[in-house]
Amino acid sequence: MAGLSMPSSLAAASTGLRRRPRRNVSFDLSIGVLIAFAVAAIAAPLLAPHDPYSVDLGLTNAPPGTPGHPLGTDGSGRDLLSRLLFGARTSVIGPTIAITVSVVIGVTMGAAAAWCGGWIDAVLTRITDFLFAFPGLLAAVFAVALFGPGIVAPAVGIAIAYSPVIARLTRSVVLGEQQKLYVVADRTMGFSGARTLVTTVLPNIAPIIVSQCIVSFGYALVDLAALSFLGLGVQAPEADWGLMLNESLPSLLLGAWWVMAFPAACLVLVVVAINTVGEGLLDRRGKKRKR
């Protein structure tokens, strides 16, 4: 009923916001960067001019612009552009695993806490608080110590460390949603609580959860790259941005800065783009929710 008493100008502004978001140059640029990133990850074998693993010891640390190697080569003479394109793949796969697992854990915990209330809520909130004590990188390192290096073990470690953020968000959004008329109406009509939760509440809160996931994806990307950089994630000779940065150290000492600069630029650019899109969406949802 609140909608009826809303001044018409405000209502118009809020629907306008939903239909056509204000033009935002950095938001649009970021979307462009992410599309390029996705294309690189999907079409790497088609786009790459060389085999990312083929070593050419006669042509190491070649500068950008070398014929046949537009971005130059690394310390083992491997083509940098090809390795960057293939590196986009591991940069998608790792964070995707991490975020999927953390959404499953976080949404289950948050929704159960809000929906059941009482002692279940108290226990789950305690567990959430406890999980906040583990920084993502520490959880990932610990997981690698137990399960060995690779993509899956650190991704799951990160997922557990990130799940409290999603659990807390889900809990607060579901609590807000429970006050709404459609939930009360469903209850009065005698539908079971679990059914209402899964079929109507969760789809309604999905947009804000997805926005949070995009932000978390950026953090997971950095943490996983950091892990590969330490030699605990993706293993050589695989093409991965973090690993490429690790391998760039000897080239850097020889003055071949481009071996470090290109993977660094890719990583930073993608992370900034993901943050811009994620924060932008979260802001919009936040504004909408307040209305």
């Binding site: 950095v222 790259a225 950091a226 950089f229 940065l245 760039s248 150290l249 850097l252 000492l253 003055g255 800065w257 470090m260 660094a264 990583l267 930073v268 992370v271 900034v272 943050n275």
Partner: peptide, 22 residues
Amino acid sequence: TSAMSALPAFVAALVLLFVFAG
């Protein structure tokens, strides 16, 4: 500050190493 907060520590370390030490 938004550029700073997006810069991973290990990337910053490599850049600083190259410029100020190298």
